[in-house]
């Protein structure tokens, strides 16, 4: 078994005038480890390699990156899913400024998330116990609330690449719909009126890269479609 060829995107703002690809050889002993484990092995070879990681089980959303051209979470992506011809190319998430190596500046991504007012709004006084919600109403939140803000979707979306300052992007819109769909939220009109401009929602051209890469199997395109339906119903 020959060693795995790893091509890693490197950039250190203090020493590098431009990013470059560094080649590594790693002996995985034929085991089908996760890409994150591979990075840990690289970091032992070269301590200067920088990447984010936390939960190592696909729920915290830290280690979104581009592996052989496809966005995903390093910690739940086995080598067998990405390696081609015994080679893997690791790059930062596309479309966001790179801070160092695989670490990107996610400020624009978070700004779009904050823009959709990602919190429950209810103008009625809270009861002494919980607000009641039927299981059917609650079911509408499935496939929405599970988002981990890893940015794999938004950074694979060409519309977000071109207008990250104006287009909310699939992650933000999925969360927007999570609150629009919540029977306990009373700010539907305000939420919708904030989205009816030509950019926020309507820059989605249904490319569906977001659906293809979401590591949690969520479907932002469907949520965007639902928002459009609600906008239409609200305005006609």
């Amino acid at each position: 078994m020959s060693k795995l060829q790893v091509s890693l995107y490197r950039y250190n703002p203090e020493t590098d005038s431009a990013p470059y690809m560094q080649e590594f050889e790693v002996d995985t002993q034929g085991r089908d480890i996760m890409v994150l484990n591979l990075l840990e092995m690289l970091k032992e070879q070269d301590a200067t390699v920088a990447y984010r990681r936390s939960c190592r089980e696909g729920v915290c959303g830290s280690d979104g990156m581009n592996m052989n051209g496809r966005n995903g979470l390093a910690c739940i992506t086995p080598l067998s899913h990405v390696v081609k011809n015994n080679k893997v190319v690791l790059r930062p998430l596309p479309g966001l400024p790179v801070i160092r190596d695989l670490v990107v500046d996610m400020a624009l991504f978070y700004k779009q998330y904050e823009r959709i007012q990602p919190y429950l709004q209810n103008d009625t006084p809270a009861p002494a116990i919980e607000r009641l919600q039927s299981p059917e109403e609650r079911d509408k939140l499935d496939g929405l609330y599970e988002c981990i803000l890893c940015a794999c979707c938004s950074t694979s979306c060409p519309s977000f690449w071109w207008n990250p300052d104006k287009f909310v992007g699939p992650a933000g819109l999925l969360q927007s719909y999570r609150f629009l769909a919540d029977s306990r939220d009373t700010a539907t009109r305000e939420r919708l009126s904030d989205l009816e401009d030509p950019f926020s929602v309507f820059r989605c051209r249904g490319i569906m890269n977001c659906v293809a890469v979401c590591p949690k199997g969520l479907n932002p395109t469907r949520a965007i479609g639902k928002i459009r339906e609600m906008l239409l119903a609200n305005a006609t």
Binding site: S193, L195, E196, D197, P198, F202, R228, L231
Partner: peptide, 18 residues
């Protein structure tokens, strides 16, 4: 809300319907 003065109707929804 993102405002834009050069879009057709200045409303994404109207543009989309049109």
């Amino acid at each position: 809300m993102v405002t834009n003065i050069t879009s057709f109707s200045r409303s994404g929804l109207s543009d989309w319907i049109i």
